[in-house]
Amino acid sequence: MVIPVHDVNPVRRTPWVTYALIAANVIVFLHTPGMAGSVAGGSNLAQLCHLQAFMDQYAAVPRELIHDQLPRMVPTGEVGVGAHGPGCVVGPPGYDKSPPLSVFTAMFLHGSWLHLLGNMLFLLIFGNNMEDRMGHIRYFLFYIVCGYAAAYGFALLNDTSGDPLIGASGAIAGVLGAYLVVYPRVRVWVLVPFLIFLPLRLPAWLVLGFWFVLQAVYSSGHGISGAGSVAYAAHIVGFVVGMLLALPLRPGTPPPPEPRRLMFGRQARPRHTW
């Protein structure tokens, strides 16, 4: 696994849409029940029930997306005591849910700080250049289309699943796929864990290609345990869709200027010798 830190690919305009998406994801996360203090851990039953009800209402559910089958009984967010002890109360839904709209809301939900920060790191590093290349409006539409494609692609493969699907990973995977097509030779500073974190400057095709291969391996169930908790198939679909949509952008894209002297992604100050 490699952790991207910075790409050597300057932009011509401020990536306002990328910044807005990051801000929106952070704000939604901070307002998600029980998530703001999740670093310290120790969520109580009331918080877990409230979170379960929140996710059921705003997350995308494959079974609902494909078959339009909304559940008759959903978590209410309240705690009750049943035959097996305390638990979350269920009852008829007190809201109207649109499965297609839930894909949009699910794109701004995350299950942990690590989930959020990992996604926002990739979006910040690679999204600014794609926004610069596409323009603000086209980039936003591209982001949303990739997110929808990833969600519905995953749902088609798991059409009986009632587990909530959340996160911006599918849309961001589309951004990564587009970046690979448009800027394959751009150098990316990454941290490689090998006893310590080693900083390396690698081409984008290697960094993103390796990321895609990992998603494919994880999606097949190899390499990790509990692969079902992460929608790796959604990452694959989003990545491929992003590549296909970016193909018309590749002709005429000049290679980015690269400073001759670099020190971990920044231009080194000139040194004078005596």
Rank of each mutant, 00 (worst) to 15 (best):
G34F: 10
G82Y: 10
I196G: 03
Y232S: 12
L157R: 14
L262Q: 14
G170Y: 00
A83F: 04
G94M: 04
L198R: 12
P71M: 06
P71S: 15
R185C: 08
Q52T: 15
P193N: 06
L202E: 07
E131N: 05
S161D: 13
I22T: 10
H6T: 10
V186Q: 02
G77R: 10
F54H: 12
P248G: 06
M107C: 08
F212S: 02
Y95E: 03
M243Y: 02
Y148L: 12
I166Y: 00
A234D: 01
G118M: 03
P248N: 07
L247K: 07
C88F: 11
P254A: 15
H235C: 13
F194H: 08
P15M: 04
W274K: 12
V182H: 00
P86I: 05
A173K: 01
W16V: 08
H50P: 00
H110K: 00
P199M: 11
V90L: 12
L45I: 15
G153R: 00
G177R: 01
H6L: 15
R261F: 13
H235A: 12
L195T: 08
G226I: 09
V207Q: 04
A46T: 15
Y95Q: 08
I125W: 07
T76M: 13
Q52I: 02
L109T: 04
A204M: 07
L262I: 15
H6R: 15
T160C: 07
T18D: 09
P255Y: 05
D96Q: 09
H136F: 06
G221M: 14
M1V: 12
Y148G: 10
R269V: 12
L157W: 09
Y139Q: 04
D7W: 13
L191N: 04
E258Y: 01
F29Y: 06
S161V: 08
D132P: 09
V90A: 11
M263K: 14
Q69W: 02
L214S: 13
F264L: 15
G174Q: 09
W16L: 12
L195S: 06
R260D: 15
G167Y: 03
A150G: 05
P99M: 05
I125G: 10
F239E: 01
V61E: 03
P10N: 07
A53L: 11
C146V: 04
A204H: 06
L157A: 15
L123Q: 06
V175C: 02
D68H: 15
E131L: 08
Y58C: 02
L51R: 14
R261P: 00
A150E: 00
L117C: 02
T18K: 05
V11I: 12
V2P: 09
W205I: 00
A234Y: 00
G223R: 11
I224E: 10
S229K: 13
P100H: 11
F239L: 05
R133E: 11
G177K: 01
T273C: 10
P92M: 07
R63K: 14
Y183L: 08
F197K: 10
M130A: 05
G174A: 08
Y143R: 04
A204R: 01
S169Y: 00
G127A: 08
Q52F: 04
M35K: 09
G162D: 08
P193R: 06
V103D: 04
D56K: 12
P164I: 06
P99K: 06
V181G: 00
I22A: 10
V39R: 11
L121V: 09
P251N: 09
L206H: 00
A171Y: 04
W205S: 11
V17G: 05
L202M: 13
A268C: 11
R261H: 13
